[in-house]
Design a protein around this nucleic acid. Structure first.
Lengths: 150, 150
DNA sequence: TTGACTGCAAACGATTTGCAATTGC
DNA sequence: GCAATTGCAAATCGTTTGCAGTCAA
């Protein structure tokens, strides 16, 4: 279900990120690459605050508002997505292959899963009257094994 | 896609609400019934603030914090649900039949739709290793007809 | 060099809280 | 009458913003 990137995949994705930034007219700053790299390294949908804490050891001077600003900028350029939870803090992830979310109601941890069968399935007919569809994501709520006890 | 309640359905649902409150040991206050009634009357997933504005004509003294507190209380008792959007303000709805959400990226309006085919479908096998599933909801992002232009 | 980006501090908006008065049971 | 609930005001939390200095191109 989870998918840690290999060293090569990480390098390659970082290269693509740099290219995408340049194409978008965004400057490739140390802060931006580090933020993106950490999103890839620990793809557990961290909040801006958590991400900031993770960045401090390698970038002691980075400020929380830069993290916020960068995530917002990258989101606007489709490189990062802000995910929908019922919590107060927003959570972020690097954009990649279509996937869905399992959210534990207790620990609030978000885990990705794939469900190709759904991705292929067409929405009900009457939805097409509503408008133009961009994405569909399944959000599953429950209690994870860890929280359930054993 | 949308489903306004008939007068009888509204009455009946309100009765069930009162019963559920009593069963949960919650006092049936005027504020609580009005909040719940308005969620049923205009099932457009209002934010606490919008709901508060709607309540003011009939309950001029109701405060915004009571609306927040009540929604949180009712949510804890499973009578209301807080829905997941990528916005800063939370949105709420009365709990009822399983349904899914269409969210317009421009106007942020949330519309319900049914998709029984999905409700029946089992999740991928490996998800069962994750834990106990409570609910699954599809969140569809796109641009509604109204915003798209014609 | 120069405009985009950053860090700082202060502002902001959404939501929560402590407390005294009020109300349902 | 008593505990739960409310309204008020103030506090809190997450996030955004103005500004002056800094850095990638």
């Amino acid at each position: 279900m989870a998918k840690p990137l290999t060293k090569e995949q990480l390098e390659q994705t970082m290269q693509q990120f740099v290219t995408a930034c340049k194409q978008a007219g965004l400057k490739v700053t140390h802060q931006r690459t580090e933020i993106y790299r950490h999103l890839l390294l620990e793809p557990d949908h961290p909040s801006a605050e958590i991400l900031h804490k993770r960045l401090l050891p390698s970038l002691p001077s980075i400020s929380l508002d830069t993290v916020y600003r960068t995530l917002t900028t990258l989101e606007q350029h489709g490189l990062v997505s802000r995910i929908q939870t019922a919590e107060s803090q927003a959570r972020f992830e690097a954009v990649y292959a279509p996937h869905h979310h399992l959210i534990c109601s207790r620990c609030k941890r978000v885990v990705d899963f794939q469900w190709p069968a759904i991705d292929r399935l067409d929405l009900p007919a009457d939805v097409s009257n509503w408008g133009q569809i961009d994405s569909k994501t399944i959000v599953v709520y429950g209690t994870c094994m860890h929280c359930a006890g054993h």
